[in-house]
Amino acid sequence: MYDLDGNAIAAPLFDVFGVEMTTAVGTCRGCGWAGPLAEVAVYLVTPGVVARCPRCDALLIVIVDRRGMACLELAGFSSLEQPGGPGATGRTRPTRTEPRRTS
């Protein structure tokens, strides 16, 4: 059983998205689970973060830091949206994103 949930990765998510993301709602491409990123299952791995679907265990988020570049993988989501409020990002269909420099 996993030890942590998405609340624990609020900071690394903020680093790559530039907005608070634990309230954003993601939908698992594998099983259709939909919920706030705060509810995903999180594993801290060196040197990064892995998050899985709390229902079907599919890989949802990988964040790896390589020499100051945050490499982000989100292909496990069929959608990811920030419902309203400041920092709303609108509905997107994320695939592999370009690395973004964080420092």
Binding site: G6, A10, A11, F14, T22, A38
Partner: peptide
């Protein structure tokens, strides 16, 4: 660093 988190 912080504060972070907006859900809980």
């Amino acid at each position: 660093r912080g504060p972070v988190g907006g859900y809980f």
